[in-house]
Structure formats: C-alpha cells, structure tokens
Design a protein around this nucleic acid. Structure first.
Length: 251
DNA sequence: AATCCGTTCAACCGCCCCAAG
DNA sequence: CCTTGGGGCGGTTGAACGGAT
C-alpha cells in the first residue's frame, strides 16, 4: 500500500508562483503563522501543494533572507562546512544567517564547484583533483555523509550524531579544521522558528542539562506570527555581525 | 535577426525521519 | 511493535536568461 500523495495534483497549480499567490501566502502566514503545511493551501485559498507553499515561504518569502550576492567569506565558509558535512545543505545553511539550503545548494553547484576545480581541488572529496587524500564521501552512506578517508575504514558508519544527541562530527573535525566551529546546536543564527526546548521553558542549563543535547531536527518548533518573526529578525540582524565574526574567527 | 548553447535558479519529486495513534 | 501522516531534506528538472556565433 503506497503513501497517499501529499496533495491532489490534478487541482493544484504548478510552476512559478504569481505575485497574487505570494501575497495570499504571506497574508495567511502573517495572521496564522506557518506550520501545518498540508492544510495551509486550502485555508489560504491557494491552489498549491502544501510542500510547494512551504518551499516558497522558506526559500523566498520568509523575512530576513539575503538573496544572492554571496560574500567571499561566505564562499569560504560554505567550502569548509561542505568539507566536513558533505551535502548537508540544511546544516550548512543553518550556519549562514539569511541563507537557505536551496540557495546554498544551487550556489555550490553553479559557482563553488567550478571555483574549487579551478583551484585544482576535487569539490566532492575536498582533496587534490587527482584523487589525493582529504575527505571522501563514503558511497555506502546515505546522502553522502563525508568521513575522513582513514576513519571511513577504521570506524563503522556514523550518523554524525552521538547517542546522546551531541554532534559527533565536532571532535573528529576539530582535528581537521581546528578553527572551524562545528557546534551544530541551536543558536540564533539558525533560529527560523526553532528554539531550544529548555531555553523556551526558561530553564538554566544546569537544570535541564545541556541545550546541545537536542538535535536541530528535534528542536521544539512553535508557530508564531510574522510580526514576532520580524521582531526577532531585527534583533538577530543587530547581533549578526557578532555571530559571523565569532564563527569565522581565524579565517 | 535568428539560432544555438551554456548557465542560473525556482520549483518539483521522491525519499527519509519521527511522532502520534 | 506496526502503521500512518506531516514535515523536512537532497537530488533533479526545466524554464528563463544572456552571450556567442
């Protein structure tokens, strides 16, 4: 028995979004907040698949997006993060305020790949283009999670998350990229309506354990209005310089 | 001016993960 | 446990665009 389709394709619009559709989506989210994507199109009066609405909102309509014009520092950061995380675009995006996974993925495929090849670097393995040492994608791993070549043979495949929920790539990659902050715990630059449960509950770390124990995917999500998101965005933008500076220290 | 060709990027597709029942 | 549904992710597609011929 197959899964039911996420929407009735025969009665949904496809392709490029019109200005009117954008306005409808924004207006709906402004009032009701985002979330419950499957029922959102109907509630908003849109003839669109819920997934399509989500994508449109996350990648293009959501406040605080930068859109284009990648800075040189962002390029280098993406390259370093990709070397460690592989094609984990959402994780990479979470470290780049105002950038989306889709945008970074496209940017990687259209610009950075070529840039690396021009430098004689293999964009997949992050080593010399002639197949030298460096990071390698283990083909047996789902979705190309990279591991160091030596470790790929010495250790069993890992999901990148230790059993306690902490990122296990951090210590491993500290050795390879000691200047790279790979703390993948939830932090303001990647908030996008995701907050730490214990922080949300007003608990101190000592009371509820480390916030880092909650992986991003499992973070508490809650629905809030556009105004709330915009307010937070303004606060984030004020702090943004600080976050980027502290993260890319040593570059 | 017309056509070809490479590039870009918005959008879709299919799969996976996880929580709820 | 198993099934189901929702949300999210990464890979891929194809229309639009711009430059070259």
């Amino acid at each position: 028995m197959g899964r039911s389709p996420c929407c009735e394709k025969a009665h949904t619009n496809r392709g490029a979004w019109t200005k009117e559709e954008d306005e409808r989506l924004i207006a709906h989210i402004k009032v009701h907040g985002n979330g419950c994507w499957r029922s959102l199109p109907k509630a908003a009066g849109l003839l669109r698949c819920g997934k399509s609405c989500r994508l449109r909102w996350i990648n293009y309509l959501r406040p605080g997006l930068k859109r284009g014009n990648f800075a040189e520092e962002e390029d280098e950061l993406i390259i370093k993060l990709h070397g460690v995380l592989g094609n984990k675009w959402s994780l990479i995006a979470s470290r780049l305020p105002g950038r989306t996974d889709n945008e970074i993925k496209n940017y990687w495929n259209t610009h950075i790949k070529r840039k690396l090849i021009g430098r004689g670097v293999d964009p997949r393995a992050h080593g010399p283009a002639n197949g030298g040492a460096g990071l390698a994608i283990n083909p047996s791993r789902p979705r190309g999670v990279p591991v160091a070549v030596d470790e790929a043979t010495a250790n069993p495949p890992s999901t990148g998350l230790a059993e306690d929920g902490h990122s296990s790539v951090t210590s491993m990659d500290d050795e390879r990229c000691p200047d790279l902050n790979l703390d993948l715990s939830i932090s303001p630059p990647c908030s996008e309506a995701t907050v730490c449960l214990c922080c949300h509950l007003g608990l101190q770390a000592s009371e509820a354990g480390s916030c880092q124990a909650i992986p991003i995917r499992h973070g508490l999500r809650y629905h809030r209005s556009l105004e709330e998101e915009e307010e937070e965005q303004e606060e984030e933008e004020e702090e943004e310089g600080h976050h980027v500076d502290s993260f890319v220290h040593g570059y």
